[in-house]
Simulated scan of single mutants.
Amino acid sequence: MRMPTEPSDLVHFESTLEHRAWVYGTMGLLMGSVGIAGTHTDSPGEVLALLASCVASYYAADFVSGVVHWGLDNYGDGDTPFFGSQIAAFQGHHSEPWTITQRAFANNVHKVFKPATAPALVLLAAAPFTPSWLTTFGASLLLLLCLSQQTHAWAHKKPSQLPAAVLALQDAGVIVSCKVHGAHHRPPFEGNYCIVSGVWNPILDGNGSDQGFFRRLERIVQAATGVKPRCWTDPEGFAGAPEGDQDT
């Protein structure tokens, strides 16, 4: 495992103006959508629906983060159209997992916020015309998915490196902990993909059974396309996949 040896090694981990623009601009769009939804909420029932949609988005985000993580880890490469840079970053993360702990916030998350900008714009434009609970669910889900890259980064840090509030959330199981996510980094990297809270991991993994959700899904993909997932064919752990350049 290569570690940085010179200050110049760390320059690629700093946040740039472009990184911040993608991250905070998209956050603003999503928060604007929720703000519009709030202005359309009048009755106690609507408020309750709004709160329920937030809770539902939290659990949905963990599920979706696992499915996306599974797909990026196991299929395609850096040359894959549209998703190549994300695939390279996720697959390369297994060979150099330390890099995620060195990146500044916007540097770390901008590549997931960037493709989220278009759906965030759609949510904002549609907010005055859609049910408040639906707008809130969509915006909250998208925001949590984008921020999952930061909960992922925290899950790679030592407890002594984390703010007390983050450590408390990990200990309470609200966000994924180092212990839970650490199980994913054991070759052949075939489980524990969820990186928001990790609550879906034992369910989707089927407790290691061949009948788990991902194992079934892999067999379906293989039957339909003939393509085997990387966790079947690269048990050494993505040895040839350096982490993608997050500054591109």
Results as ranks from 00 to 15, higher is better:
residue 111 K to V: 11
residue 23 V to M: 02
residue 235 P to S: 04
residue 21 A to S: 08
residue 208 G to C: 02
residue 109 V to H: 12
residue 75 Y to S: 00
residue 105 F to S: 08
residue 240 G to N: 06
residue 75 Y to K: 00
residue 61 A to I: 01
residue 233 T to L: 01
residue 19 H to S: 13
residue 105 F to H: 09
residue 164 A to V: 09
residue 192 N to R: 14
residue 247 D to A: 09
residue 2 R to W: 15
residue 133 W to F: 12
residue 32 G to A: 03
residue 95 S to W: 01
residue 137 F to R: 00
residue 56 A to M: 12
residue 220 I to K: 06
residue 61 A to M: 03
residue 100 I to Y: 00
residue 117 T to C: 13
residue 64 V to T: 03
residue 62 D to E: 03
residue 20 R to E: 10
residue 66 G to T: 01
residue 244 G to S: 04
residue 3 M to V: 14
residue 34 V to L: 10
residue 129 F to D: 06
residue 39 T to R: 09
residue 91 Q to W: 01
residue 170 Q to N: 07
residue 185 H to N: 05
residue 66 G to S: 03
residue 51 L to W: 10
residue 144 L to K: 04
residue 82 F to V: 13
residue 49 A to H: 02
residue 167 L to V: 07
residue 78 G to L: 07
residue 14 E to K: 15
residue 101 T to N: 11
residue 127 A to Q: 08
residue 78 G to I: 03
residue 175 I to C: 03
residue 158 K to I: 07
residue 247 D to S: 13
residue 177 S to V: 04
residue 26 T to S: 09
residue 3 M to E: 06
residue 47 V to L: 14
residue 61 A to K: 03
residue 78 G to N: 05
residue 142 L to N: 03
residue 234 D to V: 00
residue 224 A to V: 14
residue 96 E to A: 07
residue 91 Q to C: 02
residue 205 D to K: 11
residue 180 V to Q: 08
residue 169 L to M: 13
residue 111 K to L: 15
residue 94 H to T: 04
residue 151 T to V: 02
residue 41 T to C: 14
residue 189 F to V: 07
residue 172 A to Y: 07
residue 7 P to F: 15
residue 59 Y to T: 00
residue 25 G to Y: 05
residue 141 L to N: 02
residue 90 F to Q: 11
residue 139 A to S: 12
residue 222 Q to G: 09
residue 25 G to C: 02
residue 223 A to E: 10
residue 7 P to V: 13
residue 173 G to A: 02
residue 167 L to C: 05
residue 68 V to K: 00
residue 163 P to S: 12
residue 133 W to I: 01
residue 107 N to L: 12
residue 120 A to V: 01
residue 82 F to I: 08
residue 100 I to A: 11
residue 232 W to R: 04
residue 102 Q to G: 08
residue 220 I to L: 13
residue 25 G to T: 04
residue 58 Y to G: 10
residue 171 D to K: 10
residue 189 F to W: 10
residue 136 T to S: 12
residue 138 G to F: 08
residue 117 T to H: 10
residue 49 A to Y: 05
residue 178 C to H: 13
residue 20 R to F: 06
residue 124 L to R: 05
residue 54 C to Q: 08
residue 223 A to V: 03
residue 35 G to C: 07
residue 4 P to V: 14
residue 3 M to G: 07
residue 85 S to K: 14
residue 171 D to Y: 00
residue 89 A to W: 00
residue 112 V to T: 09
residue 192 N to Q: 11
residue 178 C to Q: 14
residue 30 L to K: 13
residue 35 G to V: 07
residue 147 L to H: 09
residue 236 E to S: 12
residue 62 D to C: 01
residue 120 A to C: 04
residue 82 F to C: 01
residue 165 A to H: 10
residue 146 C to T: 05
residue 245 D to C: 00
residue 182 G to V: 05
residue 17 L to W: 09
residue 95 S to I: 05
residue 37 A to E: 09
residue 179 K to C: 00
residue 77 D to A: 09
residue 79 D to Q: 11
residue 241 A to F: 13
